[in-house]
């Protein structure tokens, strides 16, 4: 791979895994908190539980983001995840 293309791919991967992974996690935390409170949990407790689990989810997403073979699949995967969460948010709202 030419040097410039390699650098672009690396930048896309770091950006995707770190920022994309965080965005997906933050969205999942907020949606998860709503879902848990709808399931009958006190809403402050639901937020706390979702936020704590968020760190574990982010860790998994980071590791997956840095190990997945193709950087396109990383963006596709996170994009699909974000779309699902967004739909859930609309549904619960």
């Amino acid at each position: 791979m030419p040097r410039a293309a390699g650098a672009t791919v690396t930048a896309l991967r770091v950006l995707g895994a770190v920022c994309g992974g965080y965005a997906l996690t933050a969205l999942t935390v907020a949606v998860g908190a709503v879902a848990l409170s709808r399931a009958g949990m006190a809403r402050s407790e639901a937020v706390a539980l979702a936020a704590m689990l968020g760190f574990v989810l982010y860790l998994v997403l980071l590791l997956w983001g840095f190990s997945v073979r193709r950087v396109g699949r990383l963006w596709l995967g996170f994009g699909a995840g974000a779309a699902v969460m967004w739909a859930l948010w609309r549904l619960l709202d």
Binding site: A26, A30, R43, S44, V47, A48, F55, D93
Partner: peptide
């Protein structure tokens, strides 16, 4: 620091205003 690192965590369950944040803090 979960509320620092996920500052929007309560948006869905409470709302996004300062009042919502105060309500979450008081309940948690």
């Amino acid at each position: 620091f979960m509320t620092i690192y996920f500052p929007q965590s309560y948006y869905g369950a409470y709302g996004s205003t300062a009042k919502d944040k105060a309500a979450f803090t008081a309940e948690a």
